[in-house]
Design a protein around this nucleic acid. Structure first.
Lengths: 115, 115
DNA sequence: CTGTATCCGCCTTGATACTG
DNA sequence: CAGTATCAAGGCGGATACAG
């Protein structure tokens, strides 16, 4: 495996970043989200700064489309590009697999903590 | 989406952690790896401490099996459990997708940095 | 509303030394 | 060989203020 900091690993770190994972999952429903709606959906566990930073990185990678409506007050919508849908698809598959197996993991953790 | 710190999100963060991603990918070949061989494979980009920490977390979650041979000098082998293979499978799928699309991402980045 | 800029605390990470 | 312990440093992330 190529493990030095190659482009692939950098991209992987963007996609699997703490907030990137959540953003991609939310956007995966296919619709557009306003900045503040995204924040609300993430129940404010993410700060504005980190949400912005995450969205910028994903936009730069071509995963997220940022549509700005030049009105006052500002109106910006985020959605997945076709490329982003591909990445999000795998992430959602992983998340769903975890959902199906979280009980096994929790049991394993309890067994581990016991001994 | 459930976004408060639920078990699922914690598990996701273990799996998608910086070193967890790499370790699961390496172990995905199905064989057992000794501690120092893992370090070598990761070309020493990971410190002993973080590798240990990562392996402990994955072992606790039931993804990694740790086999200790009580000999001197110590001999320990790490491998994936059936559960771990399931998780690693999705991770490898994502990594492979990224490999196939990294050129598109790089182009997007260059376009973004241009403007 | 959608950000950017700044400051700052703290946690993760890494380096080093040491142990069984 | 396979770790653990300790400590230092940097960056991540949060809070706040403010701009367009």
């Amino acid at each position: 495996m190529q493990v030095t900091m190659c482009p692939e690993r950098a991209i992987m770190e963007h996609v699997t970043s703490k907030w990137g994972v959540l953003v991609l999952q939310v956007l995966h429903d296919g619709s557009s989200w306003r900045f503040s709606d995204l924040r609300r959906e993430l129940q404010s566990v993410v700060s504005e700064k980190m949400l912005t930073q995450t969205l910028r990185t994903l936009e730069r990678d071509g995963f997220v489309h940022r549509e700005v409506y030049p009105v006052i007050p500002p109106h910006v919508e985020y959605s997945l590009t076709p490329l982003g849908k591909g990445a999000a698809h795998h992430l959602v598959a992983l998340a769903s697999w975890i959902g199906e197996h979280s009980a096994e993991v929790t049991e394993s953790q309890e067994r581990y903590d016991m001994s």
